[in-house]
Design a protein around this nucleic acid. Structure first.
Lengths: 247, 247
DNA sequence: AAGTGGTCTAGACCACTCC
DNA sequence: GAGTGGTCTAGACCACTTC
């Protein structure tokens, strides 16, 4: 099977290095569902011949996709699409409190279509008022309210989520994005500030209005840097504890 | 300069692949302080010849160390030990006016020998009460107080600093550690909490007692993970803005 | 112009898994 | 034994930084 060779890379920016274009087409094939965890991908030698690239180049790309968590390689048996591990991304971006104590849970209060507010739109690189899904959620630890979250997901990228009931999403959103939309969150930026609670937050957090609270604004991105989620979380300042490693 | 060739890898488990052993010796050379961020490492071609390995193998190892955050490569200029930019980065997070305007400065209030308090001792892996240098400092922007800092440096590691006058240290401490003690800070852990100002902090920060403030406790480490500095910074919560990238 | 890292190729050989 | 990924080599050529 000779394959289309480099013609398969034609639609992409030719200024990009070969390995970058190759990565895009492989990611697209994984996200299309053409390859599933059930069976191995074609062998690296077959893929290299198919796209008419050197084996080393193909291996470099496959290695990057393994690093990114998209693929998994098993010596002697093949290269596989990695099944989403529901616990791996669990605490990855959850820095509030001690991860070891208690089990965090999410109670979704509302889940609707909404126009993007200005701050969310700017972070997501969308025009203000663009269509989105808006998720309002309360996070608890040991039945104690810990964080109130407002999450915006731009449409149409997350359109298939709109057809799901909120109970299908589960406590963990990032695995749901991956499962239903093929979107893998790879990095995030967070900005922390301190302010005072408004009436709605105070009620949910069981604190007084004007009590000090912490705001955490997060922009989550895919591997290629595209912003795919913006959220604003509010928690009581008294309970606040945020731990971060800097390298 | 022919170099020792593979003899340099002799002490290591020969069952390990070449790249793994190579990686260990390069990490050791970085941790020994032989290479510093000031000057580039030998070129990849020179290193490959020195250890008598193929260029591709050397490039693979260097790439892994970049991935790990130990090294940094600059196309056209060389490969460098990566230094953490903590001093400059932390200060940028405090929005006292425009971050670009004005020059952040540090005014050292006191600089003395002191016994390590319990929290600092635990973070540094030293016995409580061990000998240390204690630095009390006020950080300002545009002559406005922004942060009060207490910094502990374990002795005898930092002994040569004790002989310097506080004015020799300058505004940036990490370069001073590097210059005077050969200590390169490579990573840090920070824990942020919110509380209320005590009398001394309130006076220095020009706020009321019981005003909300943010505490930042930082443990700074060298490349090999040894904790070399512990500091506690206090700033008014109203001015607080902390930005972090998570990967 | 010289020196650095970045890309890409081509091929040999080894180690592991599965039938 | 056949097929898979893992290791390692050797070398050409390009792009960027510095002087």
């Amino acid at each position: 099977m000779p394959g289309p060779g480099r013609a398969a890379l034609d639609g992409l920016d030719p200024r990009l290095p070969l390995h970058a274009r190759l990565r895009e087409v492989l990611v697209a094939r994984v996200e299309s569902g053409e390859w599933t965890p059930a069976r191995p991908l074609p062998a690296e030698t077959a893929l290299a011949e198919y796209y008419e690239v050197a084996l080393g180049t193909m291996r470099r790309v496959l290695g990057e996709l393994v690093e990114q968590g998209l693929l998994e390689r098993r010596h002697g048996s093949g290269t596989f699409v990695r099944r989403a591990k529901l616990d791996s991304s669990l605490f990855r971006f959850f820095r509030y409190g001690d991860p070891r104590s208690g089990t965090p849970a999410g109670r979704i209060l509302s889940f609707d279509r909404a126009a993007l507010p200005a701050t969310a739109a700017e972070a997501l690189g969308e025009p203000p008022g663009a269509a989105s899904l808006h998720l309002h959620r309360l996070r608890l630890r040991d039945d104690e309210p810990v964080l109130v979250e407002d999450i915006w997901l731009p449409l149409p990228r997350f359109a298939v989520l709109a057809d799901h009931h909120q109970d299908d999403l589960g406590d963990l959103l990032y695995p749901a994005y991956e499962r239903h939309c093929g979107i893998v969150v790879a990095s995030a930026e967070e900005i922390l500030t301190v302010g005072t609670a408004n009436a709605g937050d105070a009620l949910l957090l069981r604190c007084r209005r004007s009590d000090p609270v912490v705001f955490i604004e997060r922009t989550a991105r895919t591997h290629d840097g595209t912003a795919v989620e913006w959220r604003r979380s509010v928690g009581r300042a008294a309970d606040f504890r945020y731990r971060i490693e800097i390298r």
